[in-house]
C-alpha cells in the first residue's frame, strides 16, 4: 500500500529552497529512514506531511488522502521536532485531551493514556508535569502521544536527538515492537541506529531527493567492515594490506576498519585467519559498508 506520495513538492523560505520539487512514493511496511545533512529538508518534509506548514508548490498524499484531510485523523501520528507539551498541566490531562480529540470517550481516553504511557515505560509519569521529567522521558512522552489510538503512519522527527543511551535503547526497542502495527518514517542523524531499524532509506540533500530505496547492505560491493577495539593499529593496517585480494585498508572511527578487496577473493577467510594467528579479537565483521560510509564515505 502506498502510504506517502508527493508530487513536485516544494517549500521556499524567501529565496531559500528548503524542499525542491520532491517526487516521492513510499510503501507501507518496515520503518523508513529519512536522512540527510543539516538543512537537507528533512524537518520541512515532515512538517509539510503533517500539515504544519503549507507547500509553495506541489502536493502530498498520505494513505491515499490529501494532507490535512479529516480522514487522516487517528491514522497519522507524529513526533514533531521541538514541540513541547504545556508545562502547566499533567501529562495525563494533556494526553487525555489528545485521546478525546481522536474520538475516545472519558474512561476510554484514560485507559488509552495509561496504555501508551505503559508502552513507553512511563506508567507512573502520568500525574507529573512535563517540567518534572528528564529530556529523555519527555521525548518518550511525546512518542507516547503519537501512539494514541492505532495510527497507520507515524512520523518521528529526531526521536533520539540529545538523549542518553538507555533512553535511546528504549525508544529503539519501542519502534521495533510497534512497527508491526504501523509504518514509521524516522528522521535522524544517527545512521547506525537507522540501519538497525529500517529497511528503506530516503536520502535528501539541499532540499532534493538523492536516493530512495532499500537500506540493506550490499554484501557484494567489494568492501569488508571490521570492528577491532583493541589491536595495534599500525601492525593491523600493515599485515592486512599484505593479504591477497586486499586493495587498501582505512581506519574509520575508533577501532573500525574499512577494507577494499578485489573481486573473486575470499578476503574474509584470510582476515579471520590473520586475527586468529595474532590472537586479536574482533567485535563484528560485516560484508559491505555501513550506511554512513556508503552515503558520505
Amino acid at each position: 500500500m502506498n502510504i506517502i506520495n508527493t508530487t513536485g513538492l516544494s517549500k521556499n523560505y524567501g529565496s531559500i529552497k528548503a524542499l525542491d520539487n520532491l517526487d516521492l512514493s513510499l510503501e507501507s511496511g518496515d520503518p523508513i529512514a529519512l536522512i540527510g545533512p543539516n538543512g537537507a529538508g528533512k524537518t520541512t518534509l515532515l512538517s509539510l506531511l503533517c500539515g504544519f506548514i503549507h507547500p509553495s508548490s506541489g502536493s502530498a498524499e498520505l494513505l491515499g488522502k490529501k494532507v490535512g484531510s479529516r480522514e487522516l485523523i487517528g491514522k497519522l501520528a507524529a513526533l514533531p521536532q521541538d514541540a513541547h507539551l504545556d508545562p502547566r498541566f499533567s501529562i495525563q490531562r494533556q494526553l487525555g485531551l489528545f485521546a478525546k480529540l481522536q474520538g475516545f470517550s472519558g474512561d476510554a481516553a484514560k485507559k488509552e493514556v495509561s496504555r501508551v504511557l505503559e508502552t513507553v515505560l512511563l506508567a507512573d509519569a502520568g500525574v507529573k508535569k512535563p517540567g518534572e521529567l528528564s529530556h529523555g522521558m519527555r521525548k518518550r512522552v511525546s512518542i507516547a502521544q503519537a501512539l494514541i489510538g492505532s495510527p497507520e503512519l507515524v512520523l518521528l522527527d529526531e526521536p533520539t536527538a540529545g538523549i542518553d543511551p538507555p533512553n535511546v535503547k528504549i525508544i529503539r526497542d519501542l519502534i521495533r515492537s510497534e512497527s508491526s502495527n504501523a509504518t514509521f518514517l524516522i528522521s535522524s542523524h544517527n545512521l547506525d541506529e537507522l540501519e538497525k531499524l529500517c529497511s528503506t532509506v530516503v536520502y535528501l540533500s539541499e532540499g532534493k531527493l538523492v536516493e530512495a530505496g532499500p537500506i540493506k547492505t550490499n554484501t557484494d560491493d567489494g568492501y569488508l567492515t571490521i570492528s577491532l577495539p583493541s589491536v595495534p593499529e599500525e601492525q593491523f593496517l600493515r599485515e592486512c594490506a599484505k593479504l591477497t585480494g586486499v586493495l587498501n585498508v582505512h581506519r574509520q572511527a575508533q577501532g573500525d576498519y574499512l577494507i577494499r578487496q578485489t573481486e573473486g577473493h575470499a578476503v574474509d577467510q584470510a582476515l579471520l585467519a590473520l586475527l586468529a594467528k595474532n590472537g586479536w579479537k574482533y567485535r563484528h565483521l560485516i560484508k559491505g559498508r555501513s550506511l554512513e560510509e556508503r552515503l558520505y564515505g
Binding site: 514533531p80 514541540a83 513541547h84 504545556d86
Partner: peptide, 16 residues
C-alpha cells in the same frame, strides 16, 4: 504560546 511552544502541532494532528 501554544503556537510558539509547538503544542499546537499536537492538536492539529487530531483536529482542524
Amino acid at each position: 504560546s501554544d503556537k510558539t511552544r509547538g503544542t499546537m502541532r499536537f492538536l492539529v494532528l487530531r483536529t482542524s
